[in-house]
């Protein structure tokens, strides 16, 4: 079985289902989904419409947030029972935390942040991920261990098609004994991030660099991002200068992003930044220096002052 591990019925899980169904056609393996999380998972039944064989759900109000030790104990137990060949999970804060802990307990291999999954003609499960810099790819196999585990970068694969319920497909809500809920961590509070668009999920990122000259000009960047429902990104230089928080930093010491449109405004394009954004679908670079390295990875280059160019883009967008 190819098992998908998730904590929500959301896009990233549907993307993995799409890929898993494609892999199951090549290998004959069944596709299962195991979701662990809060009460909202009671709506998990709709996953059966995507053509999976089995959906297992642990839904409990004590699991609304990621209670690491309980999540690990429950997942380990259920995975041992299901004995999958392969486990896939989104490479978000959930998958990137729980999957390594499970791999350690099961003493097996885990590949982080894959962007391609396939079987070769001998049936080896090929996991491909970007290596340092993003323009080197490494293909990894786990020859002698089971399960073979991989986290997959969200927005890599297409969402599964609603092909309808498979014959014999079943949904099961699993009961977990109370002793599994003993924990050494306790959630005290949760504050939702409301207004901000997560840069790893945004369709558009407007990223700013030192070329904007002043912290006040970040307002222009925020305005444009707001207009297009996008997120604000940042170079390391302006994060270090405290124009914006670390959460927004794109690059090797920040986040890796792959939006539909990436606008680099006043960013010269240090290697460490380019490595975090070069796989974006379309890159628009705005910089006064026509020799700035950022133009080498751009699709559209505008040689001009970043601030006034952004202002002009906003003005024209507003006057439709």
């Amino acid at each position: 079985m190819i098992l998908i591990l998730g904590n929500k019925v959301e896009r990233s899980v549907l993307e993995l289902i799409g890929k898993a169904i494609n892999l199951s056609e090549k290998s004959g393996m069944k596709v299962g989904v195991f979701l662990i999380g809060g009460r909202e998972l009671e709506n998990a039944e709709r996953l059966l419409d995507y053509g999976v064989d089995q959906v297992f759900v642990v839904s409990d109000e004590r699991l609304e947030r990621f209670v690491s030790d309980v999540y690990l104990r429950v997942s380990e137990r259920i995975i041992k029972d299901m004995d999958p060949e392969i486990i896939l999970s989104p490479a978000d804060t959930f998958g990137r935390s729980l999957m390594p802990m499970i791999a350690a307990k099961l003493e097996t291999g885990l590949t982080a942040d894959c962007t391609e999954l396939d079987f070769d003609e001998k049936g080896n499960f090929l996991q491909t991920r970007p290596a340092i810099g993003g323009n080197i790819m490494a293909t990894i196999v786990i020859p002698y261990h089971k399960p073979k585990m991989a986290t997959v970068r969200p927005r890599t694969f297409n969402i599964a098609k609603e092909i309808g319920r498979k014959k014999g497909a079943k949904l099961e809500f699993l009961k977990i004994p109370d002793e599994y809920f003993e924990s050494n961590v306790r959630l005290l509070s949760f504050k939702e991030k409301r207004d901000e668009v997560n840069i790893q999920e945004a369709d558009v990122i407007v990223a700013a660099g030192k070329g904007l000259r002043r912290k006040e000009n970040m307002e222009i960047v925020r305005e444009l991002a707001g207009l297009v429902g996008g997120a604000v990104g940042a170079s390391r230089a302006i994060v270090d200068a405290k124009w914006i928080s670390h959460d927004h930093q794109v690059g090797l010491s920040g986040k890796t992003v792959k939006p539909k449109v990436y606008i680099a405004a006043g960013i010269s394009g240090a290697v460490q930044h380019i490595a975090g954004m070069q796989t974006s679908e379309m890159i628009i670079a705005i910089n006064k220096d026509k020799f700035a390295p950022i133009f080498k990875v751009a699709d559209i280059g505008i040689v001009a002052d970043a601030k006034s160019t952004l202002e002009e883009i906003i003005r024209r967008l507003r006057s439709r």
């Binding site: 885990l110 323009n135 790819m137 890159i283 670079a285 751009a298 160019t309 002009e312």
Partner: peptide, 29 residues
Amino acid sequence: SPTRVVKVFNVSVTRKADMYEGKRVSEGI
């Protein structure tokens, strides 16, 4: 180590930018 790297390859992501300079900046915008 359960994992083995079996292949390393380059993907060229160098793109050819349409450049807009000087009088053409407005067109680029």
